[in-house]
């Protein structure tokens, strides 16, 4: 009944406004399944509609990680602490790598805290399709919900490590060490940096996950590559003390500016605004490309995975 009415309406419209292209027959279809969507359709409204699912996933990740562990969230504490101590001993103590006059502990923590967040976001989201093949093969929901939920759940780990970092910062400040945080900028820039890291990790992660559905080789590359990339980022070595010959590697890495900025606002130093801007632009591009390819792959990956 209803469709007939609409048909009549469109017909009369066609006669009166002849140059208008003919409307698709009573186009009140709520869903059309086509072979391929257009690549610029990011389907973000679809993701918004499933936001409850996103929170469910985050909750699931949070609850299931600590189940049956004795120390629970403390594990997130121990791991960066040990890594930082290792760095302090090896790079500062033995190899005598400069930390730009800052206390080594604080210097490394300011690097590993953001880097860890980015790295976990990247490695975990890069397995989206393969790890969830079973779920994705049974029911439809916007697949993008899964990597986004991973990025959000990783915030918990980040906050714990961030608290650790703040604790050390407070300790050194009370001790009277020469540190000059940009207090005002901290408040404004911390969330921006966090968002940039999340988006960059997400963008690269989903790009990789889209490619791994067909070529599994990439999964080996990711865990290994992320470790390598840490050395191409000023986590251990400050950019200022990198020889000009190798500097381009760090400059080409969009994470470098983020980590440099993070360290500068908390520990004092020059904020590389220009590089940060470029890094933000690259992040956005990677993210858009990632979502576009991800959306394309999600439609057919069940046939290749």
């Amino acid at each position: 009944m209803n469709s007939q009415h609409t048909k009549i309406a469109t017909n009369s419209l066609k006669t009166s406004v002849a140059q208008l292209p003919a409307a698709e027959s009573s186009d009140d279809w709520s869903l059309v399944i086509r072979p391929q969507g257009r690549w610029w359709e990011l389907q973000l409204t679809d993701v918004w509609h499933y936001r409850d699912l996103l929170w469910m996933f985050v909750r699931r990740d949070f609850v299931s990680v600590y189940k049956q562990t004795i120390l629970g969230p403390i594990w997130f504490f121990i791991q960066p602490l040990l890594t930082t101590i290792m760095f302090t001993v090896i790079f500062s103590g033995i190899a005598k790598v400069s930390t730009g006059g800052l206390p080594p502990m604080l210097f490394y923590l300011a690097g590993t805290t953001p880097w860890n967040y980015f790295a976990t976001c990247l490695t975990k989201t890069s397995g989206t399709f393969i790890n969830n093949a079973n779920l994705f093969g049974k029911v439809y929901f916007p697949r993008l919900v899964t990597p986004i939920s991973i990025v959000v759940s990783n915030l918990i780990q980040f906050s714990i490590q961030f608290l650790l970092f703040l604790g050390f910062l407070a300790y050194y400040l009370i001790k009277g060490t020469e540190i000059h945080p940009h207090w005002l900028i901290i408040i404004g820039l911390t969330p921006v940096l966090l968002l940039l890291m999340a988006l960059l990790g997400l963008g690269t992660g989903i790009l990789v996950s889209s490619l791994t559905t067909k070529y599994r080789d990439l999964t080996f590359l990711v865990t290994f590559g992320v470790q390598l990339a840490m050395y191409g980022t000023p986590v251990i070595i400050p950019m200022a003390s990198v020889p000009a010959k190798y500097l381009w590697i760090m400059e080409a890495n969009p994470m470098s500016a983020i980590i440099e900025t993070f360290r500068s606002i908390y520990l004092g130093g020059v904020i590389p605004w220009m590089q940060l801007g470029i890094s933000a632009a690259v992040t956005l591009l990677l993210l858009l490309a990632g979502i576009a390819i991800f959306n394309k792959v999600e439609k057919t990956f069940m046939d290749t995975v």
Binding site: W29, S30, L31, V32, I33, P35, Q36, F136, Y140, T300
Partner: peptide, 22 residues
């Protein structure tokens, strides 16, 4: 159920759809 897409052709659906494959 939108788990995969057709190679060619179209499906048009009116209303909320849910599938129980499991």
């Amino acid at each position: 159920s939108r788990v995969t897409t057709p190679t060619s052709g179209e499906v048009k659906i009116k209303g909320r759809i849910a599938s129980l494959l499991e």
